[in-house]
């Protein structure tokens, strides 16, 4: 019972539980909050994988940024006054069937091949490695990402312009 295993299981259970709450919840706002919990649990999983930088980015961008965005979206689109935020799922059976079947197939596929059981040793700090490769090997995607963010910014502001 090492710390790693306990941490993994804790975060895993939290993640799965929060995920189920997201999709099965009736209240949209509650679903969003459970999503935030799921995202933080994911950050925890990243920590167990020694990916501290990714975990930090996850918490900052996802749990911070995305949730904020979604909350604002809800505020804009739902009539908060006088009406309960609720939504009923549709076609549960069909969706559940496909999701379950897909899960089963994926799990079976995973259980087939021989997979590594121990993590290889780390040669140095992963964060430092990542930074280096971002600016050397992956410079081009890095820059393109910046362009992409610019395009996204423009697009979103165009979409959301005031009506005239």
């Amino acid at each position: 019972m090492t710390l790693e295993i306990v941490a993994f299981w804790a975060f895993a259970v939290t993640l799965v539980g929060a995920g189920l709450a997201v999709v099965l919840g009736k209240n949209l706002f509650h679903s969003v909050l459970f999503l935030a919990l799921a995202l933080i649990a994911t950050a925890g999983i990243f920590l167990t994988l020694d990916a501290e930088f990714i975990a930090a980015v996850q918490v900052l961008l996802y749990a911070g940024g995305v949730i904020t965005l979604v909350v604002f979206g809800i505020v804009v689109t739902e009539r908060l006054v006088g009406e309960k935020l609720s939504h009923v799922s549709r076609h549960v059976a069909a969706g559940g069937l496909v999701a379950a079947a897909l899960a089963i197939l994926l799990l079976r596929g995973i259980s087939h091949g021989p997979l590594a059981t121990t993590k290889p040793g780390l040669a140095g700090d992963l964060t430092r490695q990542m930074g280096t490769s971002l600016l050397t090997r992956f410079t081009l995607p890095f820059e393109l990402l910046a362009v992409l963010l610019l395009i996204g910014l423009l697009g979103a502001s165009y979409f959301a312009r005031p009506e005239d």
Binding site: A12, V16, V22, V23, G73, H87, G95
Partner: peptide
């Protein structure tokens, strides 16, 4: 873990009526 979460997400995408959902 990833497979399970993925399928849960798929289920949510297919069944939710609200677009934000």
């Amino acid at each position: 873990l990833a497979a399970v979460v993925f399928c849960i997400g798929l289920f949510g995408t297919v069944t939710r009526r609200n677009t934000i959902g």
